[in-house]
């Protein structure tokens, strides 16, 4: 179905190109915007401009930031001896939410994935190695628990072992607050493998 207005069609198409938005949702969003006062729509367009103009990578950790280096990298309260390596800026957000981690981050922007043509040079790995000076005492690898994340973890572990830096990975296991009997067997069997002595 096509609309009589080319402008509407263009906006619908643009919304559809976003992740997890289908054509119906795109239409609903478009018509919602159309009915809003001009100021609201202006706010959207200038906010989108700002997003692209102001946000860039932190030259240390490669998280998104407006000031370089970012607030985490420059904070006096952060422990500079620990670096937590993640795939995605969203992962930083997730770990920050815990409020438990006080070290620094490093965002790789992906994982090794030959099928998508992503090799070590397409990730921020060189930049990570450049950060590993004498102050850094521990690297925590917190990549996604899938095949690609696993291989990337092994790759990084190999590099850091040559540099003689303590390297750890986050544990895999049962989510807190859920019942053991409800945990899926695959996760549970991994949790058993990774049991720790008390």
């Amino acid at each position: 179905m096509h609309y009589t207005s080319e402008s509407i069609e263009t906006v619908v198409e643009l919304f559809t190109s976003l992740p997890s938005i289908g054509r119906k949702t795109a239409q609903r969003l478009t018509f919602y915007l159309l009915r809003q006062p001009r100021e609201t729509v202006d706010k959207f367009s200038s906010a989108l401009q700002d997003l692209k103009n102001n946000v860039r990578f932190c030259s240390h950790c490669f998280n998104f930031t407006e000031q370089d280096p970012c607030v985490i990298c420059t904070s006096q309260k952060r422990d500079k001896s620990t670096i937590c390596v993640v795939e995605d800026p969203n992962d930083v957000l997730a770990i920050e939410k815990t409020g438990e981690y006080k070290g620094l981050y490093h965002v790789l922007h992906g994982a090794l994935n030959p099928l998508d043509g992503i090799g070590p040079n397409d990730l921020k790995i060189k930049e990570l190695i450049a950060r590993l000076n004498t102050d850094v005492q521990e690297i925590i690898l917190a990549l996604n628990p899938n095949v690609e994340g696993e291989v990337t973890t092994q790759y990084l572990a190999k590099i850091t072992s040559q540099l003689d830096i303590k390297t750890t990975r986050i544990a895999r296991g049962i989510p807190i607050g859920s019942d053991l009997e409800l945990a899926d067997e695959a996760t549970l069997s991994r949790a058993l493998e990774g049991r720790i002595q008390l």
């Binding site: 994935n113 030959p114 099928l115 899938n146 095949v147 690609e148 291989v151």
Partner: peptide, 13 residues
């Protein structure tokens, strides 16, 4: 599933 995925990645390489 993991084995299949790894073979695919390795074959691509």
């Amino acid at each position: 599933i993991a084995l299949k995925r790894i073979i695919k990645q390795r074959n691509d390489l």
